[in-house]
Each structure stands twice: as structure tokens, then as C-alpha cells.
Nucleic acid binder design. Structure first.
Lengths: 226, 226
DNA sequence: ATTATATGTTGACGATGTAAATATATCCGC
DNA sequence: GCGGATATATTTACATCGTCAACATATAAT
């Protein structure tokens, strides 16, 4: 089976079969990416608990020990995949800020983007915050998470000048960042874990999640005294 | 107590033992409680990832399959232990409310109690919110979690009359509950996962965690316009 | 071309969850 | 007290997992 040179697709032989860069890397000159893709598929289908090295290798069509070369161990794979998730989330948040009209709207847009990401990729989101399973000394993970902080900080500081107190106080900036992050992160996690389901029943309309999130974000705005 | 025949619950083989009852009999007597205690010890020492059926049994001094009789499977053990955690948290929150002076102070006290619980029992707290590993059809878990909701709801409704808008609106009550819960839960989870560490550095004093939490809670109070 | 390195495979080991078969203790109706 | 029914605990077994070591092969370097 493994020595069947004739039909086995994963052979190192066909160096350059066609002038076109074959997207099908037979012998995974791109195994790392293939493994990450397979791992994310598992995350979508079975969640974090289903994510194993062997199943990932199986889906990529390689032996169970192949991932070791690219990730070291399971923690490595999970950390790299989490980094991809943080990158993606940072990009989404950044876009949300760019499209928003005004500093206050930008903050809300970031929050909604964060929640939408968690809802659309709950498995990946869970992995990103399964701290015990991640290696935060990994360069990819450090870089990706700092990207998120950067986007949030920019948005908060853009809003700052319009506020009355603590204009340039870094302490207040940090408090604002923490408040927004905690609120939205708590909402996202509790939401995808079905912890808010009973409360959602009280909300009106079709988009009950959006309604509850709006209600929560509204409670964060002291300026809006009705 | 299912069996009060003697003084020691685990004493069923009085063969030719010395005056002291043998520490181990075939039937433990209170194995379920012993297993839960052992499981929590593991949680303290090694976190959720270290919590296994076999290690729990090992610590309780029984065979690896013994827990099956009391919990069914690992999910059962985890769910029961999580239920204990929710009970404990509900009690702590309830006490915090009782000791607080005024409705607004009660809300803050609940939040601080929630965070303190997470900080003092991070392993258990993680387990309580590892939704994928829990069985929310378990009676113990349903009851314990609804206890938490009850405490929070009471505190929110106690505060309600002092507010200007949405006095008796259940929709607004739910929004207030969700806001408080999400904010505090987000803070607690991010905190014990070391995600807030960089931000804590900006806070003054010895109790940086308390300072940041205070700052966050303060941002939730529209009435305090300085 | 030869050597070195990177990548992938095979086989093995111990740990785990779970099930089945078995053993022992307790309970319940007499 | 007695004896079966039930609850509780053990033993054995199996599949799966992460990880390691030894090995094989492809790519890169010299």
C-alpha cells in the first residue's frame, strides 16, 4: 500500500508536472496548510474534543506521525490553528471598524463582528480560548493576539477624545478596552454555549441574538440618557 | 446515609482485622462523595485536562471502573462536579447580596463574588463552563444553574425600581441580567486565562485585579456622571 | 554526485474511556 | 434470622489516543 508507486497520489516524484502551479500539492509540499485545513474541518464537525492529531493526519491522507514534523505535538497544532483564528478575527474586526461611521459606531461594530465570528466558527472560537491547550510562547499566537489588541485599542482611543473624563489617561483607556472586551467576550462565549438561550426567548423579532446584543451594548452608553 | 449500621460507613468486613476498621472494604459506603472530592483535588492540581475517570478512581482507592456505578461515564462525573460548583457559587453570590448595603452595591458584590470564585477555584470554574463536556439534562446541573439565575434575577429586580426606564419590563430585566453576567463572566474567564495580564500592569496599587474590576464596574453606571 | 537536512512511515508503548463478565455486599420481603 | 434481588466493586478486554524511536525517502546544500 505505502509502496505502491504506480497509483498512490502522494509521491514526491512529479516535481513539475505542468507549467501551472498545481494547487494539488500531491506530496504536500503544503502538508502544514493541509493539516490546518483538515483540523479546522474537524473543529467544524466535531468541535475541539474531536480534534486529534491522528484524525487530522487521517483526513490529510498522511500517517499518524506526520504532523509531528510541522507542529511538534497536539498543543502545537492547536496553537497554530488558534493563531489562524485570531488573525481572521483581527481582520474581521478591522474591517468592521473601517466600515463604521463614527467612533461610537465603530465600537459597536467591533463587538458585533466579534460575536458574529464566534457564532460562525464556534469550534475555532472555543479553541482560541482553550488556554490550557495552547502554547502562548508561539510566535504566531503572540503576533495574532496582539493584532486583536491593536485593533481594539485603536478603536477605543479614537473614541476617547469625545469623552469627558480621562482624556489621555492610559489607565482609563485600558479600563475601556477591558470593559468592551469582557462584555462582548462574555456574551459570545455564553451565547455559543447555549447559556443565554432562556434569555433570548424574551427578545423580540427574528434576530433575537442581535436584539439582546443591542440591548446590552445600549446599556454601556452613559451618554444616551433618555 | 444509606447505611448506618456501624460508626464507620466503610466497614463491612470484620473478619480478623485488628481493632481498627480496615480502611478499604469491598463496598466503600460513600464512594460517590469520595470520588467527587478526589475529582476536585485533581482539578486543583492539574486542571480539567488532568481530570480522568481512572485517576479519580485511583485517588479514591478503588478500581478504575468503580465510578461507573455512580456517574455512568466521564461526562456524568464532570456534570455532577460542575453542579457542585454552581451550587457553591450560588451560595457565595447569595451571601454577597445579603451582606450588601443597597441594590446597587448588591450588584457589585455579586460581580466581585463571581470573580473571586473563579480566581479561587479556576479549575472548577473552567469545568463549569466547559459546556461540551457537560450533560445539561442532568437534574443536579439544571437545578444548580437555575439557582444562579435566581440570585442574579432577584438582585437585578431589586435594583429595578430605582431606575428610570423600563421599570417592570421583563425585557429590560433580562437585558440587565445578561449585561451583568456577560461583563463579569468575560472578566472572570479572561482573567484566569491570563488574557488580562498585560492590562493589569496599568492598574495602581497592590490589588490590580480589584482595581481593574472596579474600573469596569464603574463604567457600567450611567448615573455616576462626574 | 555526495552529503546533509527535511519530511513521512512504521511500530511500539503507556494512558485513557468504556463495555462485559464476574464477584461481593447490602437490601427487602418473609 | 433467611434468601433472592439489587446495588456496588473488580477484573479483563478492546479501541483510540499522544508520543517516541527507528527507519525510509525526498529535497536542499555543497
Amino acid at each position: 500500500m505505502a509502496n505502491d508507486r504506480g497509483t498512490d497520489p502522494r509521491r514526491h516524484r512529479p516535481r513539475k508536472i505542468s507549467t501551472k502551479a498545481a494547487p494539488r500539492a500531491y506530496h504536500h509540499g503544503a502538508l502544514k496548510e493541509a493539516l490546518l485545513r483538515a483540523a479546522e474541518d474537524i473543529l467544524v464537525e466535531d468541535g475541539v474534543s474531536g480534534l486529534t492529531l491522528r484524525e487530522t493526519a487521517r483526513r490529510a491522507g498522511v500517517s499518524h506521525a506526520a504532523p509531528k514534523n510541522h507542529f511538534g505535538d497536539l498543543r502545537g497544532l492547536m496553537s497554530e490553528l488558534a493563531a489562524v483564528g485570531f488573525q481572521r478575527l483581527a481582520a474581521i474586526m478591522s474591517n468592521a471598524v473601517a466600515d463604521a461611521d463614527g467612533a461610537e459606531a465603530a465600537m459597536d461594530a467591533i463587538g458585533r463582528a466579534y460575536v458574529n465570528f464566534a457564532r460562525s466558527s464556534p469550534g475555532l472560537f472555543h479553541l482560541m480560548y482553550r488556554s490550557e491547550a495552547l502554547d502562548f510562547t508561539r510566535a504566531a499566537l503572540i503576533e495574532a493576539t496582539s493584532g486583536i489588541s491593536g485593533v481594539l485599542k485603536d478603536a477605543v482611543m479614537r473614541r476617547k477624545p469625545a469623552r469627558s473624563t480621562g482624556k489621555g489617561d492610559p489607565r482609563d483607556t485600558v479600563a475601556s478596552m477591558a470593559t468592551s472586551w469582557c462584555l462582548v467576550h462574555g456574551f459570545a462565549t455564553l451565547l455559543i454555549d447555549q447559556r443565554l438561550t432562556p434569555m433570548l426567548a424574551y427578545m423580540p423579532g427574528d434576530d433575537k441574538v442581535g436584539a439582546l446584543l443591542d440591548a446590552i451594548l445600549a446599556k454601556m452608553k452613559p451618554s444616551r440618557r433618555t
